[in-house]
């Protein structure tokens, strides 16, 4: 099914260590720009370095309390999206798989919207991230119920579409019934996805679940490798598919749920990053996991540094920018498929 998309002309495969080092360096450079770069259009606002001379307290607050959480959250969200995308694509053996596919993003968004809607987020500052994570877990619980004992990838995809659609419908319903048009506006803005104005507390709240999710996903490499051969052959090589399914669904759910709840929905990273890096990893699903994690972090950090420093006027939403980059990516895939079909 998918192999036709991937029979692209072979690119040279760099040494794996060099690839990881390069991606890590890209992420670090982007993080450095994120920490020290100032907004180019902000003439009314003193730059960071200027501020450091006149009002060092404000400058350090900006560095430690504003930019550092933003960069750390960007790295966290990027690693989560890249890792989840790589794991899902390897598991479903489908290059179009991404975290949104199994309903994790939509369910997390719903959970966060419910926190907004019932005003819980007003009196409990961290109801929002908690609501998002809870939403992702409930969504995945529903997914597992729908999937039942049938581990086939088609069932999972269909169940994921069902969970996504239902969560999206409930989100729309909540917006429709919102107590105030301004609350609805806030939710819509938040769902566009952004890392702006987050604090270290967001990081502390999201990090534990994220780390559990990462640990679950990191251990799937060998099973994903075996799945290259198909499900029966993978099982004959000692892979426990039921266990793999749990690991991936829980890992993606926990980490993506936590990420969505602090950043809103940031699409396409989980789709584009594994796809671009796969040839550079020799199409090895297990090598793709760390590469996509670093690549995801690099992409999110670069995109976020760009929206922060280059936005004219109001800051562009990160999720909007990744979608702008990501949507033409489908055109690229389509072109490859059609060229092959011709």
């Amino acid at each position: 099914m998918s192999a036709t998309i991937l029979d692209a002309p072979r690119r040279a495969e760099p040494p794996f260590g060099l690839l990881l080092a390069g991606l890590g360096a890209a992420a670090l450079v982007a993080a450095g720009i994120g920490l020290l770069g100032d907004r180019l259009s902000a003439d009314a606002v003193a730059g960071f370095a200027a501020l450091l001379g006149t009002h060092p307290d404000a400058a350090w607050d900006i560095l430690i309390e504003v930019r550092l959480p933003r960069v750390l959250l960007g790295a966290m969200v990027g690693v989560t999206l890249g890792l989840s995308g790589a794991a899902l694509q390897g598991w479903l053996r489908n290059p179009l798989a991404e975290p949104g596919l199994i309903g994790a993003s939509a369910a997390a968004a719903l959970g966060a919207v419910i926190a907004f809607y019932f005003g819980i987020a007003d009196w409990l500052r961290f109801a929002l991230p908690a609501g998002g994570t809870l939403g992702a877990l409930v969504g995945l619980g529903a997914l597992l119920l729908l999937v039942g004992r049938d581990p086939s990838t088609l069932t999972v995809i269909l169940a994921g579409v069902a969970v996504s659609a239902f969560a999206a419908a409930l989100t729309q319903l909540a917006l429709n019934l919102a107590p105030s048009p301004y609350a609805a506006l806030e939710v819509i803005t938040w769902m566009m996805g952004s890392l702006a104005n987050r604090s270290l507390e967001h990081l502390w709240l999201a990090l534990p679940l994220t780390l559990v999710g990462w640990a679950l996903l990191a251990g799937t490499g060998r099973a994903l490798e075996a799945l290259t051969l198909g499900e029966d052959a993978a099982r004959s090589l000692g892979v426990r598919l039921d266990r793999l399914r749990w690991r991936i669904i829980l890992g993606v759910g926990l980490s993506v749920g936590a990420a969505v709840s602090v950043s809103g929905v940031i699409g396409f990273v989980g789709l584009v990053v594994p796809h671009l890096l796969r040839p550079l990893c020799g199409y090895s699903p297990s090598r793709l996991l760390p590469a996509s994690a670093l690549g995801g972090a690099a992409l999110v950090l670069v995109a976020d540094a760009a929206v922060r420093t280059l936005s004219p006027g109001p800051e562009l939403k990160l999720g909007v920018v990744t979608a702008l980059i990501g949507a033409p990516f489908f055109l690229m895939l389509l072109r490859d498929v059609r060229r092959r079909g011709a």
Binding site: A44, V45, I62, Y182, L185, E186, R198
Partner: peptide, 22 residues
């Protein structure tokens, strides 16, 4: 945005309930 506000070293911020929660 925080980055616009902090360099002004405000001693009071007046915010709407919904629009600038973070």
């Amino acid at each position: 945005d925080l980055e616009e506000v902090l360099p002004l070293r405000p001693d009071l911020a007046i915010a709407g309930r919904y629009t600038s929660r973070f």
